[in-house]
């Protein structure tokens, strides 16, 4: 049984430090390592401003939340950030229950997220 059956992970680099990771499908204990690996690869390449698009994420569990939190900690260590884009109402509810809604920045679109990274870059 291949991981690709349940989760598709796409990476797109926007500029020297910003990248978008799109997670489509189901993120659970079985598939989350794929997403973790993709984000760690980006970090190793110096992408500390990560946009994670959850628009197509149909299911997400605590393991997946753990991967997002772990990645957030790592990018913040490098003075970067991780922004979530378009979580479904179901996923937003899980973020609220776990209070991670207060930890992650959430945007409606990828453009909005990358614009905010650019603004922050200009201000610093």
């Amino acid at each position: 049984m291949g991981n690709a059956i349940n989760l598709e992970v796409c990476k797109k680099c926007v500029d020297a430090h910003t990248a978008i990771v799109t997670l489509s499908g189901e993120m659970d204990m079985y598939t989350s390592p794929q997403a973790k690996e993709a984000m760690l690869e980006l970090l190793a390449q110096g992408y500390y401003h990560l946009v994670v698009n959850l628009q197509g994420t149909e299911y997400l569990d605590s393991t997946a939340l753990g991967v997002l939190v772990g990645t957030l900690k790592r990018v913040r260590e490098q003075v970067g950030d991780l922004r979530l884009v378009a979580p479904t109402p179901r996923i937003r509810r899980l973020l609220e229950i776990t209070r991670l809604i207060n930890v992650f920045s959430i945007d409606a679109t990828e453009q909005e997220a990358t614009d905010k990274f650019q603004q922050e870059g200009n201000e610093s």
């Binding site: 569990d61 605590s62 939340l65 939190v69 229950i97 776990t98």
Partner: peptide
């Protein structure tokens, strides 16, 4: 007790109890 907001573990039980 609100001591573990930025945690990678232990979220599963919280979700079960909440849902």
């Amino acid at each position: 007790h609100g001591t573990a907001v930025l945690t990678e573990r232990g979220l599963g039980m919280l979700l079960i109890e909440s849902l």
